[in-house]
């Protein structure tokens, strides 16, 4: 009798443990799903589906950080499209590099409310950022001299001079 009670208690503990473990796994998975970023194409092509929802979007900060009073606009490109991010000035201050010919912008993870046709911003498709995480710091890109192009310029300069001299000689 005692033995069967102990066995029953042990199995109850095991079941509870299993339930607790599964709950933890599910919570972690749900957290992962929530944090998983959505591509710009997915957002643009299914804008109605994501309208008004909190989304996570990742990409490179490009162009200028455009300050507008206490807020700022920053455009973020994930390699497919760039999307405008509306954020507080303090969040914008965390951006160190923006992408251009001479720099790679910070790679940012933005969590915020997605707007298909933003009421506040004239119907723009945008994201109002709630949090920003810098995934990778940007960097200045140093331009390496392309010797092949340089040599081509010298060769063509020679050809151009020769053609021009020939033309002048003929005219004389």
């Amino acid at each position: 009798m005692m033995r069967s009670q102990v066995t029953c208690h042990t199995s109850q503990v095991k079941v509870k443990g299993l339930v607790l473990f599964l709950t933890c796994v599910l919570c972690l998975a749900a957290g992962d799903l929530f944090a998983q970023s959505i591509s710009s194409s997915e957002l643009i092509n299914n804008a109605k589906l994501y309208e008004g929802k909190v989304v996570t979007f990742e990409g490179e900060a490009i162009g200028d950080v455009m300050a507008r009073g206490e807020y700022a606009w920053l455009n973020v490109n994930d390699g497919q499209n760039a999307i405008g991010i509306w954020m507080g000035k303090e969040l914008a201050g965390e951006v160190s590099f923006t992408g251009s010919y001479k720099s790679r912008g910070d790679w940012l993870e933005i969590t915020g409310i997605f707007n298909r046709a933003c009421l506040e911003h004239g119907g723009d498709l945008d994201i109002h950022a709630q949090a920003i995480r810098k995934v990778r710091l940007g960097r200045a890109v140093s331009e390496r001299l392309n010797t092949g192009k340089r040599n081509m310029v010298f060769i063509l300069s020679g050809v151009l001079c020769a053609v021009w001299i020939l033309k002048r000689l003929k005219l004389k």
Partner: peptide, 15 residues
């Protein structure tokens, strides 16, 4: 703008 290789691209095109 202090760009180097783009200048070569245009020199090649112009020449």
């Amino acid at each position: 703008a202090g760009e180097i290789n783009p200048i070569f691209d245009f020199l090649i095109g112009a020449e």
